[in-house]
Structure formats: C-alpha cells, structure tokens
C-alpha cells in the first residue's frame, strides 16, 4: 500500500449527506442539517445505476439520469422523488414491500416546510418518548394516507427536505396528528 487515499469533493459530500440521512432516520422527527440544500446531495449519496426511481418533479429528472438510474412508474420504483408533493395519490402508489421482503419498501423524498402546518407527534423507535413537530406544505390528508400505506414491517420510509434541513420518518414510527 503506497499512500492513504484522499477523499475527493464528491466523496466528502456524499459521506456527510449520508451521515445526516442515517442520523435523521435513526432519530425520527429530529431535524438535521445536510451540507448542501435540496435533493442533489441525496441523489449523489444513494442513487446509481442499480436504482429504479420515479421523479414527480421534472426538474429532478436530469440529476437522476446523470446518476444512471432508470426512470419508472412509482409502483416499480425503489426511490421516489416527489419534489413538492402535489399529487395526494402518489403515496398510495409507492411500493411498500411485504412482511416477507420489507426491504422492497420504497424511500420517498418529499420537499416540505418545517415549523409550519399541522402539528404531529412521532412515537416509535429512535424517539425518546415522543417528539412534537410541524411539517407543512403537504397535501390534505397526507398523514392519513401515510398511516394507510404502512403495514409494519411493510411500508414506505419518508425523508422530508426543507432546504438543507432533513427529517426522517421511517415506517416504524407512529404519527399522531395533534
């Protein structure tokens, strides 16, 4: 072995973004900051040629194609980039996996506004007791649809983005609407 390899800019970005994503999914409802704003960092850290993705926001299609992902319908996608969620039916169309294969459940990335909208309380693994927060800019009936698409251990894992901010909502979390 000659020299220690040096982390390039892309590796450093992806590593830091993923640290934030893993932290956010480990502690649902606790906001975490990514090094860069928006979906680009998430795409760089997670998406490559092995992924089948759906992009509801056409602006996200170029970076996804650049990463090499196949664009598919939400029913077939392992990652769904909703952008700002406008279609309330999208959540129900995402793949939830099954009790036999929980890893088939999709990861859904949604742009939202933290600190606005209806108050919710997250309870479950990763949460010490319960955490109250507000997530806005979501369609009417979102939390009801989310409860419907989770049949634990099958379900959809959701990542909310607000600029650089990040909140994870794994399928193991129970959401109470205040």
């Amino acid at each position: 072995m000659l020299t220690t390899p040096v982390a390039d800019a892309a590796e450093t970005r992806a590593n830091a973004t993923y640290e934030a994503i893993l932290w956010a999914f480990s502690r649902p409802g606790m906001p975490r900051r990514m090094p860069h704003s928006g979906e680009a960092g998430v795409i760089e850290a997670l998406i490559d040629r092995e992924c089948a993705v759906h992009a509801a926001d056409p602006l996200l299609i170029p970076p996804l194609l650049q990463a090499g992902a196949r664009l598919v319908e939400p029913e077939a996608a392992d990652h769904v980039f909703a952008g700002r969620l406008t279609d309330p039916a999208l959540l129900g169309r995402c793949r939830a996996g099954s009790a036999l294969y929980p890893d088939d459940g999709a990861t859904l990335v949604i742009r939202a506004r933290f600190g606005q909208g209806a108050g919710v309380r997250f309870v479950g693994p990763g949460v010490d007791g319960g955490v109250k927060l507000r997530i806005g800019d979501l369609p009417e009936g979102f939390w009801r649809d989310r409860a419907r698409c989770v049949r634990y251990p099958a379900g959809v894992d959701i990542l909310f983005l607000d600029g650089e901010g990040l909140i994870g909502l794994p399928r193991s979390t129970t959401v109470e609407v205040m």
Binding site: A10, A14, L22, F25, P102, P170
Partner: peptide
C-alpha cells in the same frame, strides 16, 4: 462508490425496520 451507495441504501432499510 457504488459499493458504498448500495450499503447506504440497505443501512437505511435496516434502521427503518429495526
């Protein structure tokens, strides 16, 4: 990088279904 991305995706699923 592709090995890391695959592991990252699986780690997320592992954390989401403890």
């Amino acid at each position: 990088a592709s090995a890391k991305r695959e592991l990252r995706r699986k780690m997320i699923k592992a954390v989401c279904v403890p």
